[in-house]
Write a protein that binds this DNA or RNA. Sequence first.
DNA 1: AACTATTATGACGATTCGTCAAGTTGACGA
DNA 2: TCGTCAACTTGACGAATCGTCATAATAGTT
Lengths: 281, 281
Amino acid sequence: MTIRQVDDSSKMNFKIGCDTDKSPCLFKKFKTKRQQAIAEREQVLLCLAERLMEEHGFSGLTMDKLVAACDYSKGTVYNHFSSKEDLLSALCIKAMKTELQLFHKASNFKGNAREKLLALCFAYRLHALLHPTLFYCVLTSKTPAVAERASQERLDTQFVLEQQLAEVCNQLFVLAMEDGDLQGREEAEFAQLSFAAWAMAFGSTALMLAASTAQLVQALEEEKTLMFNMNLMLDGMQWLPLSSEFDYWDSWQRVGMEVFADELSTLKEHSKHSGAKGKIT
Amino acid sequence: MTIRQVDDSSKMNFKIGCDTDKSPCLFKKFKTKRQQAIAEREQVLLCLAERLMEEHGFSGLTMDKLVAACDYSKGTVYNHFSSKEDLLSALCIKAMKTELQLFHKASNFKGNAREKLLALCFAYRLHALLHPTLFYCVLTSKTPAVAERASQERLDTQFVLEQQLAEVCNQLFVLAMEDGDLQGREEAEFAQLSFAAWAMAFGSTALMLAASTAQLVQALEEEKTLMFNMNLMLDGMQWLPLSSEFDYWDSWQRVGMEVFADELSTLKEHSKHSGAKGKIT
DNA sequence: AACTATTATGACGATTCGTCAAGTTGACGA
DNA sequence: TCGTCAACTTGACGAATCGTCATAATAGTT
C-alpha cells in the first residue's frame, strides 16, 4: 500500500495523522489503531468546533474554548490544527464536503438541464441557510489572513473540492449542449459561463445573508430572489427553455419537495428554535 | 447652550465643487475648536489605520499597533472607536464614501443607460482593485460579529451610504425606462432588477479577488469577465441594446480611458511596486 | 520487564483587548 | 491674569487568547 512517511523526520514529531484523504473515495488506510483513533478524534473536534461556532457565534470559536470543551489538552488540539486559521480551514473543508453531497443530491432532480442547474442553486442556498456560520467560514478561508496560515495539505484539499463542485456545474452545461438547449457555444466557453452562474448564485446568497443589506431587499421575497436572478442570467445565455416559456417557480418548489424535503423541515425546525435568522456572530 | 446651526458661516469649508449635504457627517458644524480638532484627528487616525492594514494586512490592524503608530494614548484612541469592530466600521464608511465618489464620476460617462450601468460596474471593480483590503473591510462589516459591536451612529451612516449607492443604480433603470431601452417592467420591479445587478457585480468581483478561486478562473481574462457577466444578465433583462448588437467592450475600454484614466495609472503604478496582486492578509 | 518512539500535558511568555482612576488641559467668568 | 471645572488624556492593569515547549505518560517491541 502506501509507503510510510519516513522522509520528513523534522515534521514527524509535531504532525499527527492528518488523514491523507485527498481522494474522496477513501479507503481508510491507517497503519495502526492509534492513527485510526486520532483521525476519529479529529472528526469529533471538528464537530465540537462547529457546534461552538453555531452557539457562540463566529468570533466565539476560540482555541481555548475548544480545548476547554473537549477532553484533551491544548497541545493535543494543536497537534491536529496548527493554528486557529488551520482549524477554520478544516471547517471550510467540512462545509464543502457536505455542500458537495447536497450538489450530488440536487443533480438527481428529474428535469431538463436548466432545471437541474436551478436545483444546484437551491442546494447552494439551502446549505447557506442551514449553516450560515459555515458559509462565512468558507468565505473567510479564502482570505489571505487564513490561507497563509493554513497547512498546505488542507489548501490542496480545498482546491480539489472546489474543482469537484465546479465540475458538477460544468457537467450541466455539457448536458444542455447535448440536449440542444444551449446552442452556438464553444466548449471553451463553459468555464466562463459556469463562473457567471457561480458568481450570481454566490453574490445573491451572500448579499441576502448579510444582515444590513437585508434591509434593502426586505421588500423582495427572499425565497424567490435567487431563482429570479438565476433566470435573468440563464435567459441571457439563451439557455432553453427560456423563463418566459417555462414555469421554473414550479420546478423550484418541486426541488424542495422532491429532493430536499428532509433538509427543509430541519431548517424550519431550526428557525423556530432560534429566532428569525441564524446567528453568525 | 445647544445653538446648532448658528455659527456655520464662520466654519464653512469652501470646497471646490459644490458639496452640499451629500456626505452625511463629514463636514459637520462644530461648536468648538476642540471638537473640530478631534474630528480632524479622527481622519488622521483612519488614514493611519488604512495604511496599517494595507501594509501589514487585514489581521495586521490592531488597536495596540494603531496606538503605537499614532501620537495618542490608548484611551484617546478608544474615545474615537469604542472597539476594534467600531474602527472597522469607520473604515467601511470611508471606503463607501470613496466608492460613492467613483460612482458619481462613472455616471457622468457619455452613453446610453446600459453603458452607464457598465461604467458603474467598472467603478466597482476599480475600487476593489485599488483597495482590496478595504473591500474585505466592507464585507466584514456586514458580519454580525462586527455589526453588533459598532456604534449605532456608524451603522446609520452605513445604511444611508448604502441607500445612496443603490440609488445611483436605480436611477439608471429609470433612465433606461425613459429612453425606452427597458420595456414591460413595472417600477416596482426596479429594486429587484437593481439587486440582481448588484449581486452579479459583487459576486464576480469578490470571487475574482479571492486568491484560491482565482486559480479556477485564471484561464479567463479577468479584465473582461465582469463585463461579460453583466452583459449576460442585462441581456436576460432585455435591456436594449443587446450585447449582440452593440460593442460594449468598446464602451468598457472607453470608460477606462475617458473617466478613470488617473485611477488606472495609479493602479498600474501600484501593482508594479507591490507584486502581482494586492496583499490582503 | 525494560526500552524507545510517539503522543499528551499544562504552565508559560507574548499579544491583544478594553477599562479606569488619576492627571492634564483649556474655555470662560471674575 | 487667574481660578474653576467640565471635558479630555494618559498609561498601567486585568482578562482573554494564541502558540510553544520541557516534561510526563503511553503504546508497541524485544
